[in-house]
Computed example of a mutant assay.
Amino acid sequence: MSFKPSAQTLREQLMAPEAIERVRAMHALELEVDEAPEIELARELEEFASRGLPYYAPEDPHYREWVGKAVSYWERLQAAPAAPSRLTPRALRRVAAI
C-alpha cells in the first residue's frame, strides 16, 4: 500500500458517517496482515478483520471499543520492526501448515 494513514486518520475513517471511508480503513487493516512482522500479531489482526465491520453506531460504546481495538492493532503494526524474512507472516503460516 503506497499511503498508510496515521492512527488518527484511521480512527476518523472508522468513525466517518460515509460507509466508503469505513471500508477504506478496514481494507487498509486487511492489507497489513501480509505486512505484519510477527506471526501472532498477523493472526490476531486476520481474526479481527475477518469479522468485518460492525453495525455503524458511533454513539454506541461497543462500536467505539471496536474502533479503539482497530486503531490499537494499527499502532502495534506501525511500531513493530520490519520482518527479517522475505516471506510474509501469512506465507510462513501456510508453509508451517504443510
Rank of each mutant, 00 (worst) to 15 (best):
M1K: 07
M1F: 09
M1R: 10
S2D: 11
S2K: 14
S2P: 10
S2N: 12
P5R: 13
P5Q: 11
S6F: 09
A7Y: 08
A7H: 07
A7P: 11
A7C: 08
Q8G: 15
T9C: 15
L10I: 12
L10A: 11
E12Y: 07
E12R: 15
E12D: 14
Q13V: 00
Q13M: 14
Q13C: 09
M15F: 12
P17F: 11
I20R: 15
I20L: 10
E21G: 09
R22C: 09
R22M: 09
A25F: 10
A25L: 12
A28G: 01
L29W: 04
E30N: 07
L31D: 01
E32Q: 15
V33Y: 08
V33W: 03
E35Q: 14
E35K: 14
E35C: 12
E35W: 11
E35N: 13
A36P: 04
A36T: 02
P37C: 03
P37L: 03
E38P: 02
E38T: 01
E38Q: 11
E38H: 08
I39M: 10
I39T: 12
E40W: 09
E40A: 13
E40K: 14
E40Q: 12
R43C: 09
R43W: 10
E44N: 13
E44T: 01
L45S: 05
L45V: 04
E46G: 07
E46Q: 13
E46P: 03
F48T: 04
S50R: 15
R51S: 12
R51M: 10
G52S: 04
G52N: 06
L53W: 02
L53A: 02
P54R: 03
P54E: 02
P54V: 02
P54W: 03
Y55M: 10
Y55R: 15
Y56I: 00
A57I: 00
A57P: 01
A57V: 01
A57D: 14
P58V: 08
P58R: 06
E59Y: 01
D60M: 07
P61L: 09
H62D: 14
Y63K: 07
Y63S: 10
E65Q: 15
W66C: 07
W66E: 05
V67Y: 07
V67A: 08
G68P: 07
G68A: 04
G68E: 09
K69Y: 05
A70D: 04
A70E: 08
A70N: 05
A70G: 08
A70H: 06
V71M: 04
V71F: 05
S72E: 06
Y73C: 06
Y73A: 06
E75L: 10
R76W: 02
R76G: 01
R76M: 04
L77I: 02
L77C: 05
L77R: 05
Q78N: 12
Q78I: 03
A79D: 14
A80T: 08
P81T: 00
A82P: 02
A83T: 13
A83F: 10
P84E: 12
P84Y: 09
P84V: 10
S85G: 08
S85K: 06
S85V: 01
R86L: 14
R86G: 13
R86S: 13
L87H: 13
P89K: 14
R90D: 00
R90P: 00
L92Q: 15
L92A: 12
R93M: 15
R93S: 03
V95S: 04
V95Y: 02
V95I: 15
V95W: 04
A96Q: 13
A96T: 03
A97Q: 05
A97T: 02
A97G: 01
A97R: 00
A97K: 02
I98T: 02
